[in-house]
Structure formats: C-alpha cells, structure tokens
Amino acid sequence: MTDLPTDLPADTTTDPLVTLPAEADVVICGAGPVGAATAYYLARPGLRVVVLNYDPPGDPANLATYRYSGGSLRWTWPDPVKREMTTETEKFIRGAAPQVDLAMLQNTYHLLHTGELIPALNVSATRLVELLRDQAEERGAQFIDAVAVTGVRPDGSGHMVETTRGTVRAGRVLGAMGAANASVFPQSSAAPEKRQLFVLDLPVPPEREQMPHTIVPVGDGFGYVFLKLIDDRLRVLVGQEDIVEDDDTSGPVDHWSTILDRGLGATLPWLREARVDEILWGVDTAQKTLVVDEPATGLLIANCGSAIRSAAWLGRTLAERLGA
C-alpha cells in the first residue's frame, strides 16, 4: 500500500514451525501499541507472558492502523484522563529517544480557533511499537508471529486461546487487536472508525520546517495539517474529522478536493498547490480513551483509538489489571 519505510515495520515473521507453548500465565492477543506496551510493563522473571501476533502480508484489511497513523502527540488537554494518558507517554518517549531513533520531531499544535500554541511531538508509530516489543522480549515476554487467534473459551479457572496453530491455556487473556478485536471477541463494545491521512507532494523548504501542527475548524469538523519525517524526509500530511463522512472500509477514498472546497482551502490557500502522493488509511477504534470489557474473570478486551499517543499509560494500566 505504501513505500514509507519509516512508518512500516520490518518483517518480523518468525519460523512458522515455532511451537506454541501449552500454557502461559498471560496471553496477549495482538502486538500493536496496546499489546506490545502491556507486554513491556507486564513482563518479569517468573511470569510467563506470551504475545500472539498475526501480521498478514500487506495488511489487506488495514486493521493495523497504527502503521498508517500520524504519530502526533500532545499532552495538554482539559480532560484530566487524556492529560494523564498522554503526559505519561510523552515522558516515556523522551526517555527512550536518546537511545533509539523514533524519527521524533518537536513541534507545537496551533489551534486556529482559540489561538493556542500547545507543545507536541511527532514520532514513528512503528518504531515506537518495535521498541516496546524489543524491550518486552528482553524482560522475558515471548512473541510468536504468524499465528491468528480464532477464539477464546473458558477452561476451568482459566481460558483456552484457540489459534490457527493450536491452543494455549492461560490464567489471564488480553484482547488487544484494535479493530480486529470485534471479529474474535463479539463482546467488545468499542466502535470501529475509518481514518485517512493525505501525504502531499508539497516541498518543505527551510521556512516551512517549523510549521506547527495546525488545527483548522471547517463546518462541523476540522482539518489538521502537520509535518512528519517519512523515510528521513519531511512531508506535509493532512487529516480530517467530520468534514467528509467516509464509512467505506474497503479502501482509501480520495476526497481531497472536497475537503479543500468545503473550507480548508479558503483558510490555508497554499494547500491548493498540492497533489496527493499517497493516502494512508486504516480502521481504528472510535473512542480515544481506554475501553475495557471483561466478559469473564481474567479475560480483558481493550480498545483505544489513537493508541500511540497513550501507549505507555495504556500498557501500564492494563499490566496492573492483568498482574493483579
């Protein structure tokens, strides 16, 4: 779908003949930002943590939405929960950045309708997830790739996790597969939502390198325009919410001209010079705070849209619940 290696993970598929363990203390279904972060905070000597990851080539359903996310993070919010979630993640990222290249940019959010300038970061979502995974493995978590979870059923005081390569019995299970949770866990209450980002062909000369992440009210919604390092090159990206309704989850839809004509082009006329090089899209969770369903004791189904910006808080919070 895209040739943007900064934000697409390396091939982590392991030998398909790797044997699934018969038992684990905790099984985490999904190795995206929520699953990898939870494994990072949960893993410790003596606790058998197994993370099951299914990563079909090309991600045809575009369910691994973090790969195509903007990776932008602000930590000043009126909502105290969002503020806590993002502040903890910002501190984690800053602590990791000196040792690991997260393609980090320091910038600001500029809210045109309020005049606010809010400190912010932009990072590579896939590099952050890879870091969490690597450090979770160093702490003793076992990641098994190329295995799809097909169901979870009760088994005495625990659960049997059914997969395409056998079953694993676990005392506690976390469903952390993003929008794919719904296909395995019908009890999940989170709502799916399509998201798109337009990568533009605009140049980024020195005078544009400090452009803030600009939030533009348009009708009942808003557009956002920001810079991101992609393949070591600064690119201009544009996203939108509620300017154009788009529920087509079969693929990207190019409504760039519509967004411009409905008001974004009038506020930021320089965008009319642009062509769309690439549309990054995915199916995410609509709610941007943590939604946890617990249909049975020891079985948690976790969803959180825009999980990258809250990854550290999400991982710690879920690890505490699973480790209890």
Rank of each mutant, 00 (worst) to 15 (best):
D3R: 15
P5L: 14
T6V: 01
A10R: 13
A10M: 11
T14K: 12
L17I: 09
P21C: 02
A22V: 11
D25K: 10
V26D: 00
I28E: 05
V34F: 03
V34R: 05
Y41H: 15
L47K: 05
V51R: 00
N53G: 08
D55E: 15
P57H: 11
N62A: 15
Y66C: 09
G70M: 10
G71D: 06
S72M: 15
R74I: 07
W77G: 05
R83E: 12
T86P: 03
T87P: 02
T87L: 04
T89R: 03
E90P: 11
K91M: 15
A97F: 11
V100N: 09
D101I: 06
L102G: 14
Q106D: 15
I118F: 07
A120W: 14
L121W: 10
V123K: 03
L128I: 10
L128N: 04
E130T: 14
R133D: 10
A148T: 03
V149M: 01
T150A: 04
T150V: 14
V152M: 04
P154I: 07
D155N: 15
V161L: 02
E162H: 13
E162Y: 08
A170D: 07
R172P: 06
V173R: 07
V173I: 07
L174V: 00
P186T: 01
S188Q: 09
S189P: 10
S189M: 06
A190K: 02
A191C: 07
A191L: 11
V199S: 05
P203V: 12
P206G: 06
R208C: 07
E209M: 12
Q210M: 11
V216M: 00
L227R: 10
L227D: 10
L229T: 12
L229I: 06
D231V: 09
D232F: 12
D232C: 09
R233N: 08
G239T: 00
E245S: 13
T249N: 04
S250F: 09
S250D: 15
G251I: 10
P252Y: 02
I259Y: 04
D261C: 06
A266Y: 01
T267L: 11
P269N: 08
D277P: 13
E278V: 13
L280K: 11
W281V: 03
Q287G: 05
V292C: 06
D293L: 01
E294R: 11
E294H: 05
P295F: 00
A296D: 13
C304L: 00
S310P: 04
W313K: 07
W313N: 00
G315C: 08
T317V: 02
A319D: 01
L322Y: 04
